[in-house]
Write a protein that binds this DNA or RNA. Sequence first.
DNA 1: ACGGTGACGCTCA
DNA 2: TTGAGCGCCACCG
Length: 103
Amino acid sequence: MKPFNFNRRVWAALKLIPRGRVTTYKELAKYLGKSKVARAVGNACGLNPYAPKVPCHRVVKSDGSLGGYSGGGKKKIDLLEKEGVKIDRGKIKDFRDKLYKFK
DNA sequence: ACGGTGACGCTCA
DNA sequence: TTGAGCGCCACCG
């Protein structure tokens, strides 16, 4: 195993997200210390081997769109709705209110 | 070591 | 408001 890589850090942050709440790549990047690593964050989620362990589906884009998902967008939407996050036309409803911020 | 790609973000037209 | 372009960092071949 390797030390705390950037990816590991991202996964750890995702685990901090409470149920029924979502976060954005930007906020996540900010939490890591860089507001421009949003791409790297997305990459981390894609490489995330802890798929079920890490709620990557709770991470969305800054516009409130789901962004993407490595298993099937439908599953992600259904999962989020189950958590209490309503999705409308592929965008999160009251996204701003459900947005979770670190620190 | 280098280049290309990506689950993104912001600015400009 | 929507669409297109540029820039950012990290990972993979």
